[in-house]
Amino acid sequence: MQATIDSQAARKGWLGLLAKAPAAKLAQLWAAANITPTHHVLRAPEIGAVMVRGRAGAVGAAFNLGEMSVTRASVRLADGTIGHGYVQGRDRTHALHAALIDALMQTDAAGQVDRAILSPLRAAAADRQTARAAKAAATKVDFFTMVRGED
């Protein structure tokens, strides 16, 4: 049971990473990894929308905020492993890459795919976030109180 939860958490992790990765960067890493698995496209890349929800007062009842564009695709590898890709934006290749990587990560190729593709994506995402956070931190206000000379 614990193993299922762990593997689900890991899959959730890489699917989220692939969804948010820049399509061009992923395409470049995919090409460089030189992995060409035999596969069958179960669901051709499809562009659609997801209604994003928020909460009234950040914590209250849900409301519909607006849609975002999402592209999805599904593939089956020769050994029967199925992979799904849901990615932000309208790039069909991005969704196919995500589905293929999702499938490969459930096979013996997982280690290789993680090293060649997911690790660099994780590092790039962390760098982007840290760079913004560092700039934000530099704009944090340091208050000081003027001496009022009352004593």
Binding site: A49, M51, V52, G54, Q129
Partner: peptide, 30 residues
């Protein structure tokens, strides 16, 4: 947007977990 199929709806976003570029309060200095 009316031409796009709707895949579904998201879970409500958690703005408490936002990676803030900006965050100010006019009521609490500290």
């Amino acid at each position: 947007r009316t031409t796009l199929p709707r895949f579904g709806a998201s879970l409500p976003v958690d703005t408490g977990a936002m990676a803030c570029d900006r965050r100010v309060s006019a009521t609490f200095k500290d």
